[in-house]
Amino acid sequence: MLTVDFDRLGVGAGTKVIDVGCGAGRHTFEAFRRGADVVGFDQNAADLNDVDAILQAMAEQGEAPSSAKGEAVKGDALDLPYPDATFDCVIASEILEHVPEDERAIAELVRVLKPGGALAITVPRWLPERICWALSDEYHANEGGHIRIYRADELRDKVLAHGLSLTHTHHAHALHAPYWWLKCAVGTDKDGHPAVTAYHKLLVWDMMSRPWLTRTAESALNPLIGKSVALYFRKPAAADA
Results as ranks from 00 to 15, higher is better:
Thr3Val: 12
Gly10Trp: 03
Gly14Pro: 09
Lys16Ala: 14
Ile18Cys: 07
Asp19Trp: 01
Val20Tyr: 01
Gly25Asn: 01
Thr28Trp: 00
Arg34Gln: 07
Ala45Val: 14
Ala46Asp: 15
Asn49Lys: 14
Asp52His: 13
Ala53Arg: 07
Ile54Tyr: 05
Leu55Cys: 04
Gln61His: 05
Ser67Cys: 09
Gly70Phe: 00
Gly75Phe: 01
Asp76Ser: 08
Ala77Gly: 13
Cys89Pro: 12
Ile95Phe: 02
Glu97Val: 05
Val99Asn: 06
Glu101Met: 11
Pro115Gln: 08
Leu119Lys: 00
Leu119Ala: 08
Ala120Ile: 12
Pro124Gln: 03
Glu143Trp: 03
Gly144Arg: 03
His146Phe: 03
Arg148Cys: 14
Glu154Tyr: 05
Leu164Met: 12
Leu164Glu: 09
Ser165Met: 08
His171Phe: 15
His176Ser: 13
Tyr179Lys: 10
Thr188Arg: 02
Gly192Val: 05
Val196Pro: 14
Ala198Ser: 15
Ala198Thr: 14
Lys201Ala: 15
Leu202Pro: 11
Leu203Trp: 01
Met208Gly: 11
Met208Lys: 10
Trp212Val: 15
Leu213Ala: 15
Ala220Cys: 11
Leu221Asp: 09
Asn222Trp: 03
Asn222His: 06
Ser228Leu: 08
Val229Phe: 03
Arg234Thr: 13
Ala239Ser: 14
